[in-house]
Design a protein around this nucleic acid. Structure first.
Lengths: 190, 190
DNA sequence: ACACAAACGCATTGATCACTGCATTTAAAA
DNA sequence: TTTTAAATGCAGTGATCAATGCGTTTGTGT
């Protein structure tokens, strides 16, 4: 990956400066192109044109479509969902799962996940889920800090994250909140 | 999709005929290019060259990279795994899950799944899992035919297929047979 | 205000891609 | 064997892409 995929420019990095304005425009262009993607393939000149920026800039800042998608996915999947704190693990997980279900149902999200996986491989795939893993871990560790037993991160991933992402990516079934909460019931014994 | 994605040619369809020989060569070229994919993107001229076939042929038979990948994925994920029949649902599922884990661990498989999802979207994604869904359904229905209770297909998908595919596609953890069998234990109450 | 470095816009180049008529070969059918 | 339809090979076209060198603008530090 290029050294400036998510660049900390020594100059011009003020929020609202030109640099970050272009970054936002390019990100928005990528998401727009992915949603109403007729069949025009996602390419750097196309993204640049849509963002009102010269292709050269995109080539130099991101280098390739894969790195660009990884960057978009990383920022898209960061901070969007807040780790809930309802007092109980079950409550936290139920709210979290249904939030994630809603998030994955966003028309913008699915194409982004698919494209990132397909174009950026390992890097892209982990960009789509790393944050979720950490959030899950946070909830489980908090439960243990309360002195209660909690499932392992691995087990919770298999029981929650996996079905949510699988259903979104591989099927066309709806990710309903009820179904998401049912996943939690299967994970946590009564 | 083109009318001849998986063509039943009225002539020249003998197994071993030229038509099927080219099809096999193209399929093999796709898989080879996906495995040792330096960073050369998968394109029709590249595939054709690797297969020793003219690009025109590939364009006419498949139309686009997406449809080609869908075709490769469909045939790759068909018949490779036989539905086991051990006499008990638990035995069937355990063997099936660990077979699938092994299959998904094949170095050829993962890049194919990722590329197909990314390029062929909905079509491609379902091509990677439809057969698995049916196999799972077959085992569950057989159990019910024995007069025993069995989980729903949805539940079994969430508990088995989802973790297997999720771990393969989104993480870099190993898909061990032990872990696969543990998934079955969580699905089936003792 | 001034100077400096970084980022961006612009024009251009070579390479590759998607695609299309036309000739040829293949293989089944008559 | 002859006929016939389909599939493939071949050459070429316009369009797009990735990449580069150079001048200009932006924003920061002095």
């Amino acid at each position: 990956m290029s050294a400036s995929a998510s660049p900390p420019p020594r100059t011009g990095s003020r929020p609202g400066g030109r640099s970050s304005r272009i970054r936002a425009a390019v990100h928005r262009a990528v998401e727009e192109l992915l949603t109403d993607q007729g069949d025009e393939l996602l390419t750097i000149p196309v993204v640049a044109a849509r963002a009102g920026v010269h292709a050269t800039t995109v080539y130099r800042r991101w280098g390739s479509v894969g790195e660009l998608l990884t960057d978009v996915a990383t920022s898209r999947f960061s901070g969007d969902i807040v780790v809930p704190d309802t007092g109980s693990l079950r409550g936290d997980l139920e709210r979290y799962a249904s939030n994630l279900a809603k998030d994955l149902s966003d028309p913008d999200t699915l194409p982004l996940v698919r494209a990132t996986i397909g174009t950026a491989g390992e890097q892209g795939a982990s960009a789509c889920t790393r944050e979720r893993q950490e959030q899950l871990r946070a909830m489980l560790e908090r439960e243990e800090a309360r002195g209660h037993q909690a499932p392992t991160v691995e087990r919770a991933t298999d029981a929650l994250l996996a079905p949510l992402y699988y259903r979104a990516v591989f099927t066309n079934q709806a990710l309903t909140p009820e179904w998401a909460r049912a996943l939690v019931s299967h994970l946590l014994p009564d």
